[in-house]
Design a protein around this nucleic acid. Structure first.
Lengths: 309, 309
DNA sequence: CTATCTAGTTGACTGTGTCAATAGTCAATT
DNA sequence: AATTGACTATTGACACAGTCAACTAGATAG
């Protein structure tokens, strides 16, 4: 898909902007007795405990020749020690001396202070949350997916709105649905929140890397609140797809329904939501009824699924 | 207010991460015949049309001596021309030659391509929106507020959820209100969306720098839909306060109510929301009734205000 | 008219970034 | 057992970046 010029312009503007920010923060490091690249090498060594010259060079995108000279300087200064060569006698393991470790801590404090005073301090708590979550989001989008564990947890304050926002936007962009859909789910979430604690209901947020990766909820069905649970609003963030998050959410919802004494789970979905359907089938749901309807500005085929517990 | 260590750690992690990203993007520039700082100077000159050596040096955080030599090199290469000295004969105005302008365009294309292919290309449309909006958010938080115009506009798809999210979180952090508040406003927004087009209703988003800066809506009052309008959900983003945005929103809401034939506007607020109260007073609203109540996990003093049109 | 700024240049020097050549080491193969 | 290819580290060479201080020429204020 072709990239919009406006997006490119915004990304480049941000790159210029953040280049300056990073420059300002590094400014403060000039007070230290070490150059910036020395400081970065000390940081890497301190973080890893020990490492070879080329590992660090690769991590920091430095030339190995430059690295060689830089390490020599640090060894002369008593910051870095060359460890006895291990099995592989090509590589020379390095580590910080105790003096180097002290410097590592000092540099760390300076960097912490620079980030704290330069960026976070001027913001209020709301702004800090925004900043940190925006940064996390950018990392999640641009970095290779890590292997952070997936957590299922109840929702926190502000997250109902977040779910409405994300799903309203998501189904608009992916399915072409209009604002009616957001209106509908606003009502659905409002009903969930308003429902009493009994018969049992529950909402799960799937969290990974500190971000909302998906969600689902169980609410007693209007027709038969005592015996039938309704599964609603299953969704997975596009950035987190293909990791079995939807499956985990449905499994948890089924487990909860069974443990709560429900005899049956029902759900309503659209046949255009293919991957959701696969998850329901995989969890043992069977298609009860299909019904075409016009909603959200689209011609849809509604499906009613059920699972006997 | 003291800065949390977790926030500092996240900010520093992002700085390291983004330093690498910027490095990767600049990698591509090595194909050009110019060094990075030359490219940046060419970019600045291309953007501004003309500038003096020291202006650019300041903008790019470069040493003036270094700048002097760099400009000499660019003049030798025929990229930059020294314009005839103006009034102040100390400063030497610089501009790109036509050859330099061609290079400027070429470098721009390369940077665009790097940003597009390196960052945006791998993402789907949803991810691109997220990336761009996260970048915009960071800029808005860390940069000095610009003088972009304030726009009042209807809401777009996804923004109802966004408003619920932001206000739920905001009043939690600032007023200590609990999840009941988010539940309530979810219902309130659902009601707004469900209300018919007549009697007239309207919701305004205040937008600045491409971001939601605040919002408000007008809905016919339940008691007297024909003659009385109810003003609801006024809020301003903390980052955008002190710019008269709340005032603008209320004025617009009043203007709309009057033009729609309403005879009266009523609203409900809490006395702890001081700046909102000032705005209502400023717009001519008068306090009708006060009533203590316990809601959202707090002891509140509800206030009913009204404005006769 | 003098003192004080400001813009830009120049010299000196350290560190960065890049390329290419070299020596030592390792693992797999022929 | 010797050879080959790949990898780690070192070194020389050189252009450029970044910093500091001295200096010239022009502007500006009292």
């Amino acid at each position: 898909m072709s990239v919009s010029a406006a997006d490119v312009a915004q990304v480049r503007a941000f790159n210029r902007f953040y280049t300056r920010i990073i420059g300002l923060l590094e400014e403060g490091m000039h007070k230290s007795p070490h150059s910036l690249s020395e400081a970065r090498v000390i940081y890497e060594l301190g973080k890893r405990g020990h490492a070879t010259s080329s590992t660090i060079a690769e991590e920091l995108d430095m030339d190995r020749g430059q690295m060689s000279r830089l390490v020599l300087r640090l060894v002369d200064q008593g910051i870095v020690a060359v460890l006895p060569r291990s099995r592989d006698r090509r590589s020379t393991p390095l580590a910080l001396t105790s003096e180097g470790d002290a410097m590592f801590r000092r540099l760390n404090e300076m960097s912490d202070a620079a980030a704290a005073n330069g960026l976070l301090e001027p913001l209020d708590e709301f702004g800090r949350r925004d900043l940190v979550s925006a940064m996390r989001r950018i990392e999640a989008l641009l970095a290779e997916p890590g292997d952070e564990p997936l957590i299922l947890r109840p929702h926190r304050i502000g997250e109902i709105g977040w779910l409405i926002h994300r799903q309203g936007l998501l189904y608009h962009l992916e399915q072409g649905w209009n604002g009616e859909f957001e209106t509908l789910i606003t009502t659905i979430y409002a009903e969930y929140e308003a429902a009493p604690a009994n018969p049992p209901k529950a909402l799960w947020i799937a969290e990974q890397d500190g971000q909302v990766a998906g969600s689902i909820f169980i609410i007693p069905a209007a027709e038969d609140p005592a015996g039938t649970a309704q599964l609603r609003m299953l969704y997975t963030e596009p950035a987190f797809r293909g990791r079995g998050i939807g499956k985990r959410l449905v499994e948890e919802a089924v487990r909860f329904s069974r443990a709560s004494g429900y005899k049956r789970i029902i759900l309503w979905t659209q046949d255009s939501l293919v991957s959701a359907r696969r998850i329901y089938q995989g969890a043992g749901f069977t298609l009860v009824r299909e019904e075409p309807h016009r909603s959200f500005g689209a011609d849809l085929n509604g499906q009613y699924w059920a699972l006997e517990l």
